[in-house]
Amino acid sequence: MSQHTLPLPSHAALDALLQPQDRAFHPIEGLRRLRDAGLDQLPLPGHGATLLRWQMLAAIAAIDLSLLKLYEGHTDALAILAEIDGPGVPASSSWGVWCADMPDARVQLQQAADGRYVLDGRKAWCCGANGLSHALISCWNEHGQACLACVALSQPGVHVTDEGWHAVGMLACASVDVTFSGARAFPVGAPGAYLQRPGFWHGGAGIAAAWYGAACAVASHLHARAQHATPDPVRLAQLGQIDCALRAASALLREGAAEIDRHPQSDATALALRLRLTVEDAATQVLHLATRALGAGPLCRDARFARLVADLPVFLRQSHAERDQAMLGGIVAGAEEHPWAL
């Protein structure tokens, strides 16, 4: 498929395909529907249509954030495999990217005497582990080097626990711990390639587009109330603040997508950090203002809105907050001249 031909479905079309209001809906089923409709074949970052890729992430996030978490992981895996010449993707497979490491939950990649590679250890934050067919996993080889491996999840030696996830927000993504015991795996790229490739920060920037889509969904409830209720100066002021925050974030996302497409091999660290921090601030402001303006009603009586505002704060914690601010500040401080001329 051409990198520019994927049509962006309307919100109504996505809603009809996914039907998240159906009590039987589950994010894994939603991912299957998107995959079967060909909507997982997103333009690769830096190939001229990065904005379209981000618009799709934002559109899914506006519908259901647990689904978005699985969808983003699946589409990120496809992009990673394309960028570092990974193995082929089996038909009807669904992928996760499990690359968060904790000191007490690390996975070792070792080569057995027969030449096969196997995984041993415990991996935390394995989103969708109960329903995916494959995963890309960060691991460590016998030389202490960071590596990436792909693993089929239905084989012996892979055990999905029910441990590690107690949050109410993002509950449906079931980001549990998985243990590996001699599970067959295949190295993807050279050691360090996953972190060193240009697309690492392209993917990190794309998360900001998902945060943005969810924030817009929260704001849309206030917009609908303002359209159909008696004019209220306080509520309109809150809506005005939200409009400024979201439009500023949107402009920066569009600028960032264009920059990635113009310079796909450039270091996108600062760009990604700036986008993530800006959109995180905007989403946090939207949550604060919209819930104050709308009151308890939708929080208690609108299941979809209540789930969204419970999910979004948890999802936003993929940001590293002040640590990311400090990292960006260090990059800015290293510039020869101030970078803010209009």
Score class of each variant (00 low, 15 high):
residue 71 Y to I: 09
residue 43 P to N: 08
residue 249 A to P: 03
residue 215 A to Q: 14
residue 148 L to S: 00
residue 319 S to Q: 03
residue 118 V to L: 11
residue 293 A to K: 06
residue 264 P to Y: 12
residue 337 E to F: 11
residue 333 A to Y: 03
residue 142 E to L: 11
residue 96 G to N: 11
residue 201 W to S: 12
residue 292 R to Y: 12
residue 88 G to W: 07
residue 294 L to Q: 10
residue 174 A to M: 13
residue 339 P to V: 06
residue 162 D to P: 00
residue 340 W to Y: 10
residue 174 A to V: 04
residue 192 G to T: 01
residue 26 H to A: 11
residue 54 W to T: 02
residue 180 F to G: 00
residue 140 W to K: 00
residue 115 G to M: 08
residue 175 S to N: 00
residue 193 A to L: 07
residue 319 S to A: 09
residue 218 V to F: 02
residue 196 Q to L: 01
residue 336 E to V: 09
residue 218 V to N: 04
residue 273 L to K: 10
residue 74 H to I: 04
residue 129 A to N: 04
residue 215 A to F: 10
residue 239 L to C: 05
residue 325 Q to A: 12
residue 245 A to C: 11
residue 269 T to N: 15
residue 325 Q to L: 09
residue 245 A to L: 12
residue 89 V to W: 14
residue 157 G to P: 02
residue 127 C to R: 02
residue 311 D to C: 04
residue 187 P to N: 01
residue 147 C to M: 03
residue 263 H to E: 15
residue 273 L to H: 11
residue 17 L to Y: 12
residue 201 W to A: 15
residue 154 S to T: 10
residue 134 H to S: 03
residue 304 R to I: 07
residue 98 W to C: 01
residue 4 H to K: 07
residue 64 D to S: 06
residue 8 L to D: 00
residue 81 L to I: 07
residue 156 P to T: 03
residue 232 D to A: 01
residue 100 A to R: 04
residue 5 T to E: 12
residue 113 A to R: 11
residue 186 F to N: 05
residue 49 A to S: 15
residue 173 C to P: 01
residue 80 I to C: 10
residue 118 V to Q: 06
residue 256 G to H: 07
residue 272 A to F: 05
residue 156 P to R: 06
residue 332 V to W: 06
residue 271 L to A: 14
residue 98 W to A: 08
residue 143 H to E: 12
residue 51 L to W: 11
residue 157 G to W: 02
residue 192 G to S: 02
